[in-house]
Amino acid sequence: MTWIEKKFENNIVISSAIVYEPNSNKITEIATAKLDERNNGREGTYLIIQRPVVDGMLIHQSVFEKKEAQSNKSFEIAFYPYDSTKSARVIKSNVEGIVDFTADEKWVVFCEIGRVRVFDRESGVTKYEIKGEESEMTFDSPFIMNNKVYYRYSMNQIFALDLSTGKEEEVTVRRSILSKIYNSEGYLGFSFIEARENSGEIELYIIKESQ
């Protein structure tokens, strides 16, 4: 399990990225950031959202640089490894409009307003970019499985992008309300409810990892 804890001490916000291992009951702090809100301006880093990946945590964070009486704010996606002997690094800087994100050993995926982008993790080069039919609609809940990245578009359709070919395919047809994709060991899942019928019935769908 992973999460971000925050505490406020003497006008300094301290964000900590935490990993909990149920089998050993071990709690490990793998990253700490400080945001100084003293002296008429902010300076430092604030951890916003985390996503666990196979070898560490991806974290969407805001960075404040103080210049005279003003603070310049920017956003970045950083990687913090579980292995304390390895260094953290910024995956992408100056990112705007990030809704959700994930990664595996080879790829980094950004879901944004109006598009999905897939980067080569080592080089940072954009490999694929998928745009929605409408630029204002969002993509979210990406997960990589079976050499495909699955994601939800505009709350009513699930797609998969083949990471070998770049071909996008419909996992579902467009429907009224689909949940975000969720993951369990070896499975992805999502649910559907027809709000207009108001029947209270929900359909559950499972995508199984290939053996």
Rank of each mutant, 00 (worst) to 15 (best):
F190Q: 03
A160C: 05
E169T: 15
V171K: 02
I144S: 11
E170A: 15
F139L: 13
V125S: 12
Y150T: 05
E185V: 07
M155W: 01
Y153P: 00
M137T: 13
K167Y: 06
S135G: 10
S135K: 15
Y153M: 04
I177M: 04
V125L: 08
G166A: 03
R175D: 08
D140S: 15
M145F: 10
E170I: 02
N146I: 06
Y187A: 11
L188P: 08
Y128Q: 10
N156E: 03
I130T: 05
I177D: 09
I193P: 00
R121W: 06
K167Q: 15
S191G: 05
S154D: 14
F139Q: 09
M137A: 05
D162R: 13
K127D: 11
G166R: 09
V116K: 08
Q157S: 01
S135E: 14
F119H: 05
F159S: 11
D120F: 03
Y187R: 10
E197M: 11
N183G: 13
Y128W: 10
V116G: 01
I193F: 01
G114R: 05
S179K: 09
I130Y: 10
V125Q: 14
V173S: 09
G189Y: 03
E168Q: 11
S176E: 15
S135L: 03
S141A: 14
E129H: 10
I144W: 10
S141P: 05
F143T: 02
D140C: 13
V116R: 02
R175N: 04
Y128C: 04
R152Y: 00
N146P: 09
R117A: 11
S135C: 00
E170L: 15
E194A: 12
L161D: 02
D120V: 06
L161C: 06
G189P: 00
R196D: 13
S191W: 04
I158N: 02
Y151H: 02
S176Q: 15
Y182T: 12
E169I: 12
L163F: 09
I130R: 05
V171Y: 00
D120N: 15
R152K: 15
T165Y: 06
L163Y: 08
P142N: 03
E122R: 07
S154I: 01
Y150F: 15
T165N: 12
R117P: 04
L188D: 04
E169F: 11
G124E: 11
S164N: 15
P142F: 08
V125K: 12
F192T: 04
L161T: 02
G114Y: 05
L161G: 01
R174A: 06
K148M: 03
L163R: 08
I193W: 00
E168S: 09
G166Y: 06
E122T: 12
F119L: 10
V173K: 14
E197Y: 07
S176D: 13
S141Q: 05
Y187F: 10
S123T: 15
K148P: 02
L178V: 11
I193R: 07
Y128M: 04
P142T: 05
I177G: 00
R117Q: 14
M137P: 00
Y153S: 07
F192Y: 15
I130L: 14
E197W: 01
E185Y: 12
Y187L: 09
S176P: 00
N183A: 14
